[in-house]
Design a protein around this nucleic acid. Structure first.
Ligand SMILES: [Mn+2]
Ligand SMILES: [Mn+2]
Ligand SMILES: [Mn+2]
Ligand SMILES: [Mn+2]
Lengths: 260, 260
DNA sequence: TGCAAACTTTAGCCAAAGCTAAAATATTTC
DNA sequence: GAAATATTTTAGCTTTGGCTAAAGTTTGCA
């Protein structure tokens, strides 16, 4: 059986480079690593990337504290201290003992590159592979570290260069520019306003499902009918005249921009 | 800037599981790993997978020798010895010192799972993302370790459940069945025979390009006009009457089946 | 048959990332 | 302003998966 076996497992095209000499093979390994690092610009391990993204998510331009990162990545504080030191050595963060780490320019670029990948991949999974919200994030969390720049740009093209992912988060450009977002949670709107949903928080899957079923997705235009102070419920009317009563947690998760 | 940050970097949906206790966090980490390993059945590291695939590629059902694996993966022989021992402990190979390693049933399954992924991914990259032959293999070599079973099956569906990748290698089924292939290199054909190209070796990119440009791809029907013993050149005529003179290396790379 | 060459294993290292426990430093709280 | 509490760091270990050099086996060839 198994007569048919190509697809050589060797990392490059080099099939069994040396036959018996021994030395050249070792050199190849380190030279290859060095070239990959500088030229292909993809040296980051999964961990490194996740730490950088975590700092960006937690602190943006500011400093992320050890414990925040520790909580975010479900990793022991001591591990974080260790990694922050290493990230500084690598030039991705500025780190001050006991006062957290903030991203350098390079760290910031790297974070945005990962976010770009993550959001493009999520878009692809949802729109073309029939993924559910449940499945999407975990897959993207792994693939973002495995795909190349070439893949990323080809995928963006395949998707029609979307500016936002399916739940409305902006996708950073190849150049690392992230659309600023001035939208506010529905809960902060005022009765009578006409608004357009810009984003739905992807933190809760059930909410995404609930809102998706009702058509309360980015792009939808709503009229705010009532903001009830007693219980925080917001009543909105959609373009088809449908009325929706949204409780506190929901109106914190739906972001909208005023229009008209 | 960077106002907009969702896409929590935390591996699962658990956003900052613990606030200050400390202990539960550690437990979470190991429990998660254990569950992932057994339930999701995706525990293999990149290295582990590449070794298993290498053994399959080199030896199929037989035993792969240390040096063969070492050459294939561009890794020192001592590293191979070490990993083969570990693979045996993990149950993927049967290993005898000085006599190489052969895949167990489980190892075989794992190899085919990776090959399935690899070939489906290559198909997608070529047919939908506009990759060239040059780019395709390296990307697949990395992604095969990152995609989930769900991704693999959704992708297969997206592609229309192809049985072969673009250069003709059969794609193992989800159940781990690999189409046996009884085709032979064009060089072993006989003058006058009518044959159908079944596969083109993907070991040489220039050859793939050359053959691709001339339409000598899997599925094409040819009539063998001449087998010249002196220089090993094979002359074939394609369905449009085009004549092709293929030298030794090429006729070893093009596989065909007799028809008619 | 008997050695030299080829191959493989052993032994001893290394770096990346993680962990725990204990020590050090900040921050609260009274 | 000092004690209690929370956070962070240090120190010391672990697992993967590499590498080199040296020692041990197998094989091929005279
Ligand atoms: Mn391939
Ligand atoms: Mn990730
Ligand atoms: Mn996400
Ligand atoms: Mn691989």
């Amino acid at each position: 059986m198994a007569l048919n076996q190509s697809d050589s497992g060797s990392p490059e095209g080099s099939p069994a480079a040396s036959s018996s000499i021994g030395k050249p093979l070792m050199l190849n390994a380190s030279i290859r690593r060095a070239m990959t690092d500088s030229a292909q610009a993809h040296p980051l391990s999964v961990s490194t990337g996740d730490y950088i993204k975590a700092i960006w998510t937690i602190a943006g331009d500011g400093a992320a504290l050890t414990k925040e990162v520790s909580g975010h990545l479900a990793v022991a504080p001591a591990s974080v201290t260790n990694m922050l030191g290493r990230l500084q050595t690598m030039g991705f963060v500025e780190y001050e003992r006991y006062h957290g780490a903030s991203l350098t320019e390079r760290g910031h670029e790297e974070a945005l590159r990962l976010v770009r990948r993550h959001r493009l991949i999520e878009t692809f999974l949802l729109e073309h592979l029939g993924y559910t919200w449940e499945e999407v994030h975990d897959e993207a969390e792994k693939l973002e570290h495995a795909v190349s720049d070439v893949f990323t740009e080809r995928l963006s093209e395949f998707l029609g260069h979307p500016g936002h992912d399916p739940h409305g988060d902006p996708i950073p450009t190849r150049e690392g520019i992230l659309q600023p977002d001035d939208s506010k949670p529905l809960g902060e709107a005022e009765a009578g306003q006409k608004v357009r949903i810009s984003k739905v928080s992807d933190e809760s899957i059930p909410m995404l499902d609930y809102l998706g079923e009702r058509g309360l997705v980015p792009g939808r235009v709503l009229t705010v009918r009532e903001i009830r102070d007693i219980d925080g419920v917001v009543v909105v009317e959609d373009a088809d005249g449908g009325i929706h009563h949204l409780g506190g947690p929901l109106v914190k998760s739906v972001f909208a921009q005023r229009i008209g």
